[in-house]
Simulated scan of single mutants.
Amino acid sequence: MEAVLYVSHGSRIAAARHEAARFVEQCRRVIDIPIQELCFVELAEPDIVTGVDRCVAQGATRVIVVPLLLLSAGHAKHDIPAALDIARRRHPSVDILCGAPFGVHEAMIDIVIDRISEQSAPLDGESMILLVGRGSSDPDTKRDMSAIAALLKEKTNVPHVDVCFLAAIRPTLDEGLQRAHASAYRRVFVVPYLLFTGVLMKTIERKLQGFSVSDKEWHLCSYLGDHPRLVLLIQQQVLSLSSVKKGA
């Protein structure tokens, strides 16, 4: 019997954990697999190994692990595989397959555009976009965010898309906001490239308040959230992994 184990980042903020649970509920409705559980990398329970335990306790002989992560960084490359190694030793007869984060995908660009379009202001030649990423010491994070920014610029024809980060790498959020403030663009669309709400979203809101008295129009867009395109990407990944033969 198959199971799907969704792995969210985790947060101390209850609203973020509830958003992850609501998103998984949307996925459950379109994925025809009897066992579906949610777990977290950190800061919340259950953890990944416990998530696998719960699937197996319900009769799962194959667990399809789906990282609810935007980019491939430390959690996807190290933390999740390390936890799954423990789970495999605990359940040697269970086939455990792991998918990939959303990554640089056209659907992600479309979601960002949708979030910008929710604002009342036009995205035109007097506008720029500031993408705010979580940040990681993994060099792939900066590379992937730059690739997303380039695709976003190409698809929207906006004159300028800049990137900054909330942790670990530069430019920092403060630097990104200062650069946008010093630019010639009249409107700045600040897009939190985050999956769910949490401490980092609150940080962006607080920092942006300091620029609200400037002569620019600042538009804080929603984080990506439980967008239908994300549900479709998850559905496609689960179907692909479900078709993999055991031992392949």
Score class of each variant (00 low, 15 high):
K245F: 06
V24D: 07
G125H: 00
L173M: 11
G133D: 03
D144G: 07
D124M: 01
G210D: 14
C39F: 00
P192Y: 03
H105N: 15
M145E: 10
P67Y: 05
P101L: 00
A121D: 12
R170T: 15
G59M: 11
G198E: 04
P81Q: 07
E205H: 13
A20F: 03
F211M: 10
S93F: 06
V63G: 12
H227T: 01
L173T: 11
A248D: 14
K155M: 11
Q58R: 15
C98W: 01
E2L: 13
K216Q: 12
Q209Y: 12
M128W: 03
P101E: 03
Q119S: 15
P228C: 13
H91Q: 07
W218Y: 15
F211H: 15
L241P: 02
H219D: 08
I129E: 03
S8F: 00
A180K: 12
D226S: 14
R54G: 03
C164H: 12
R17K: 10
V190A: 12
T172N: 06
R54Y: 02
I109G: 09
V188Y: 09
V49T: 15
G198M: 03
I80D: 10
V56Q: 05
I96W: 09
A107Y: 01
S120A: 14
E118D: 10
S11M: 07
V161T: 07
R206F: 15
S136P: 10
I35G: 13
L69D: 08
D85G: 04
T172D: 07
A20D: 06
A180E: 13
L224P: 09
E175V: 08
